[in-house]
Nucleic acid binder design. Structure first.
Length: 559
RNA sequence: GCGCCCGUAGCUCAGUGGAUAGAGCGUCGGACUACGAAUCCGCAGGCCGGGGGUUCAAAUCCCCCCGGGCGCACCA
C-alpha cells in the first residue's frame, strides 16, 4: 500500500473530500460560476453510501439545469480521478451524489485523527480575530439563579469553542457595583443587622432585598466593622462590604461550575475615571442629546430606536443606560473585532438604544452581537416554583449544581437552543439523575478507558498500536469513523453560527453508535485485528475527550 | 396595540430548503457464565398549531390567523 505524503495526514480527510467535490463541480459548472462549498452528510442508510452531498441542489438555480442532471455530470468528473479515495459513486433520486469510500480512505482518516490527538477539532477559522464575550453580569445584589446559570454555560462554552477555532477570546463579567441597586443592598443589610439584634435606631431607607443571605452578610459585618461603626453614616462602606461578599460567593459558585472569566469589569470605575460624563459630553458634541423636563436625553430615535432615552434624571442621578454606554464605548476602544453579549431575553428591548449610542459615537454597531437567552422556568413536579428575587425566594445556581452536579446541569442547559424557553423540573432532574444523557456520554468515555485497561491485561501494547492497512472496516466501524470525521466541521460551524447546543446532540449521536458497536462487537479478542479495533476506539475517545473539554464536562476514566 | 422568542410523539426538546421527521424521559416486551447492563434490541406513540403562498422540493422561507412566554420606565 502506498502511504500518502505527510501533508495529507495533517489535512482533515473531510476537507480533502470536499475539495475534490468542489473541484469536480467547478469543472462541470464552467467558468464564471461561483460554486458554493459543498455540504456533506452521512446518509440515513448504509446502502446509500458512506457520505452524501447535495451540491447539485445548490448549483441548480445557478446553472438552470435539473439537480439530477447536474449530479450525474459532477459524478462523472469525480470518477476515475480518485481511485485511492473513492470506491464508488451513486447518483440518486432528486440529485444526491452518494460516495462509497475506499478502505484506504478510512485508514488515512483514522491516522489523521490519532495524529492530531488533542488538537483534533481545532481550527483557524477565527484568524486571530479579537472577540470580547460578556456574559452573566448579574447584579451583585444577591446569589445568581438558574437563569444566570444558563447564560453562564452558553457563554462559557461558546468562548471555549471560539478559542478552539482560532479566535482570540476575552471573557468578561460586568459588575453593576454603582448606583441605586447596590445601595439598596447596603440598606437591606444594615436594617437586617439592627433587626436581628433588636437595635432600635431609625434608618432613612428600607432595603428591598430579603432572604437568608442578607442575614448572613449582616452577621458578618462585625468581622470588618467595630459595632460602633455599623450605622447609616458608613452606608457606603457597608454597601461595598456587602457587594464584595456577594461577589466572592458568585465567584465561588462559578468556580464550582467551571465557568471562568479573564476580566471583572467594574461599573464604579467608569464613574471614577470620568468615562460616564465624558461619553455624555461626546454625545452632546455630536448633537445627539437634548434637555427636556429637567432631564438629559439621548436622541436615540435618530439612530433607529423607538423613543429617546434618559441619561440623567430630574434628580440629577445618572441612569444605568449612561454607564452602559460608557462600558460599551470602552469595549470598542479596546480594539475588539467582535463583541458578543449574552443577555436574558427580557432585555431584548434594550439593544436598540445601546446600538444607537454606539452609532452616535461613531462606532460600527454591527460588531456588537447579542445572544438573547430565553427564560428558564422552574418547576417541582408540575408545580411552578415562584421566582421573586426581591422576596428572596428563588432557586440559586448553587443549589441546582449541588443537587444535580455541574456536569449534568451544564449538559442539560446545552441541549436546548438558547432561543427556546425551557422548563427545568427540579424533581425530574434529581430523580432522573442516573438516566441523564450526560451519563450516557460520559459512560462511553469510561467504557473505552476500561477497554484499554482490559486489553493491557491481555497483553496488548496499547501505546504502540500499528495500523494494518489491509484491514477492512465493517459498516458499523465506518459509521463510527464517519461520525468522528464530521467533528471538526461541526465545531467550525458551531463557532460561526453561535449554536453551542449542537455539540451535545452530536455527542449523543456518536455515543449511540459506539454503544451499539460495543454490544455487537468484541473489541479485545485474540485475533490480530484487535489492534485495528483498539485504534478505532482510540479515535472515538479522542473525539469524546475533545468535545467534552469544549463543553466543560468531565471525561471520566471510571464511573 | 407594537416588538422579540416559541408552538414538532404523553412530557422535555433536536432538526430551519432536500432521502421514509429524530432523541431523551415516560408505557409495554426482550438481552448479561468473555472487553462495564449507567448498555443494547423491539413495540406503541406525529394532518410538525391552523390557513394561504413561493419552489422541482417546505417542519424549515413569505403573508394572515390562533395559542403561549418575555419586553415596551427619569428600574435594571
Amino acid at each position: 500500500m502506498r502511504r500518502p505524503p505527510t501533508a495529507v495526514f495533517l489535512k482533515n480527510m473531510i476537507d480533502l473530500l470536499l475539495k475534490l467535490i468542489n473541484d469536480a463541480a467547478t469543472a462541470y459548472a464552467g467558468p464564471g460560476i461561483q460554486v458554493p462549498m459543498p455540504g456533506i452528510v452521512v446518509p440515513p442508510n448504509e446502502n446509500q453510501g458512506d457520505f452524501s452531498t447535495g451540491i447539485a441542489f445548490n448549483l441548480a438555480p445557478l446553472i438552470k439545469k435539473p439537480p439530477h442532471e447536474i449530479a450525474a455530470g459532477i459524478a462523472k468528473n469525480i470518477e476515475g480521478k480518485t481511485a485511492d479515495m473513492i470506491a464508488g459513486i451513486d447518483v440518486v433520486k432528486p440529485g444526491y451524489i452518494n460516495l462509497f469510500m475506499q478502505q484506504a480512505f478510512w485508514h488515512d482518516a483514522l491516522a489523521s485523527v490519532v495524529e492530531k490527538g488533542t488538537d483534533y477539532g481545532k481550527g483557524d477559522a477565527g484568524k486571530g480575530q479579537k472577540v470580547l464575550m460578556e456574559y452573566i453580569s448579574a447584579n451583585p445584589t444577591g446569589p445568581i439563579h438558574v437563569g444566570h446559570g444558563r447564560g453562564a454555560v452558553i457563554g462559557d462554552v461558546l468562548a471555549r469553542i471560539l478559542s478552539a477555532q482560532g479566535y482570540n477570546v476575552t471573557r468578561e463579567y460586568y459588575i453593576n457595583d454603582a448606583g441605586n441597586q447596590v445601595l439598596s443592598l447596603g440598606y437591606s443589610v444594615l436594617n437586617e443587622y439592627y433587626k436581628s439584634r433588636k437595635i432600635d435606631i431609625p434608618v432613612s431607607r428600607q432595603g428591598e432585598y430579603q432572604g437568608a443571605y442578607i442575614h448572613d452578610i449582616s452577621d458578618a459585618l462585625e468581622s470588618a466593622f467595630s459595632p460602633a461603626d455599623i450605622n447609616e453614616e458608613h452606608i457606603q462602606r457597608i454597601t461595598e462590604f456587602s457587594v464584595n461578599r456577594i461577589l466572592d460567593e458568585i465567584k465561588e459558585v462559578l468556580g464550582n461550575f467551571d465557568v471562568g472569566f479573564d476580566h471583572w469589569f467594574s461599573e464604579k470605575q467608569l464613574y471614577q475615571d470620568g468615562s460616564v460624563s465624558r461619553v455624555i459630553g461626546e454625545l452632546e458634541k455630536r448633537h445627539a442629546v437634548k434637555q427636556e423636563d429637567g432631564a438629559t436625553w439621548f436622541l436615540s430615535t435618530l439612530y433607529g430606536d423607538e423613543k429617546d432615552r434618559v441619561l440623567k434624571k430630574q434628580s440629577g442621578e445618572l441612569t444605568y443606560f449612561a454607564s452602559d454606554i460608557a462600558y460599551h464605548e470602552n469595549k470598542y476602544t479596546r480594539g475588539y473585532d467582535l463583541l458578543i453579549n449574552i443577555w436574558g431575553a427580557d432585555h431584548h428591548g434594550y439593544l436598540p438604544r445601546v446600538k444607537a449610542a454606539m452609532s452616535a459615537l461613531g462606532y460600527d454597531a454591527g460588531r456588537l452581537a447579542v445572544m438573547f437567552v430565553q427564560m428558564v422556568r422552574l418547576t417541582r413536579g408540575d408545580k411552578p416554583v415562584a421566582m421573586s428575587k426581591r422576596a428572596g425566594e428563588y432557586v440559586t445556581l448553587k443549589e441546582l449544581v449541588d443537587e444535580a452536579g455541574s456536569d449534568a446541569v451544564r449538559f442539560f442547559f446545552l441541549q436546548r437552543s438558547h432561543e427556546s424557553q425551557l422548563v427545568f423540573d427540579i424533581e425530574l432532574a434529581k430523580k432522573q439523575s442516573q438516566e441523564n444523557p450526560v451519563y450516557y456520554v460520559q459512560y462511553a468515555h469510561a467504557r473505552i478507558v476500561s477497554i484499554f485497561s482490559f486489553a493491557q491485561t491481555k497483553g496488548w501494547h496499547t501505546d504502540v498500536l500499528k495500523q494494518n492497512r489491509n484491514y477492512a472496516f465493517s459498516g458499523q466501524e465506518k459509521r463510527l469513523l464517519s461520525q468522528c470525521l464530521l467533528y471538526p466541521g461541526l465545531v467550525k460551524e458551531i463557532a460561526g453560527r453561535r449554536e453551542p447546543h449542537r455539540l451535545t446532540h452530536y455527542l449523543v449521536d456518536l455515543v449511540g453508535i459506539l454503544h451499539k458497536y460495543y454490544t455487537d462487537t468484541r473489541v479485545v479478542d485474540s485475533d490480530a485485528d484487535t489492534e485495528q479495533r483498539l485504534l478505532l476506539m482510540k479515535t472515538v475517545k479522542i473525539v469524546l475527550k475533545n468535545a467534552l473539554d469544549l463543553l466543560g464536562i468531565h471525561a471520566p476514566e471510571k464511573m
